[in-house]
Design a protein around this nucleic acid. Sequence first.
DNA 1: CTATAATTGTTAGTGTCCTAACATTTAGGA
DNA 2: TCCTAAATGTTAGGACACTAACAATTATAG
Lengths: 144, 144
Amino acid sequence: MEAFEKNIPICFKIKNLAHLIKRNLNSSLPEESGLTGAQGFVIGYIYNQGGEAFQKDLEKNFNIRRSTITCLLQLMEKNGFIVREFSPSDARLKKIRLTEKAEDAHKKIMEKIYEIDERIAYGISDKEKEMFLDILCKMEQNLN
Amino acid sequence: MEAFEKNIPICFKIKNLAHLIKRNLNSSLPEESGLTGAQGFVIGYIYNQGGEAFQKDLEKNFNIRRSTITCLLQLMEKNGFIVREFSPSDARLKKIRLTEKAEDAHKKIMEKIYEIDERIAYGISDKEKEMFLDILCKMEQNLN
DNA sequence: CTATAATTGTTAGTGTCCTAACATTTAGGA
DNA sequence: TCCTAAATGTTAGGACACTAACAATTATAG
């Protein structure tokens, strides 16, 4: 971006790259399934939790607001990727369970995600990649 | 994110950081102005172009779709940050001009943006920062 | 010159993020 | 116990990204 001349903000570069990643991931997923990248990450998370999770876990893990989670999950429920039910032990909690459809989709989603990882890391050495990830983590912590 | 165990995708980490940046920038801008981070970047770009630009330039520079630009600019026009008029030389083009209000806001926006840049780079050496930016650029190119 | 293609912008509809305001349930303190 | 605070989720409304379909203007090829 030439707009900022020599002083392109780092935050802008990061935002830009994330934007490209999102677009690539979304367009690589089968349209007819109604599955999106964001939903793919949610499925990935719940899958690794053993197929079950509470909304509040998603909230913390993805660092997004409760209302956003509600919205996401309502859509995923509508599209048959999850089922939601109240927890018997605490009526405030809602337990999310993956459906078979989601479990079937999981492997394919992960393939797409790692494909993008490989693609963006093309021509970058393992050492560089490691340093890059370190800095990425530091930056994340710097924003709390 | 523990979800993917040891194999957290890089693309997920980038997406996450960008998300935090966006939230921080948006919440640091004065609410009453109606100004958002995205609009701030648009103002920054047009400002550096001398206060004028065409929609197609924004499209290329920010790598976002025409419909998105239309949507953004309609809002910015409504909020008094820009004025739009047809180009006399080519009636397909729409020329965007910053208003005084936007020019006044520009400096403050840039301060906020560079504040975030400083904040995310806290504890990271200049050399590291440089390498990080290099890799970021490579990754951007890898996604076309 | 005319027909077609390319360029530029809009509209409609959707997904994912936000804040603010609200409701419900559980936990804790007087 | 009872009242208040904390935790969890929803709704409403807005911002910014997308695709697909459309409209208008300009450029180009025959």
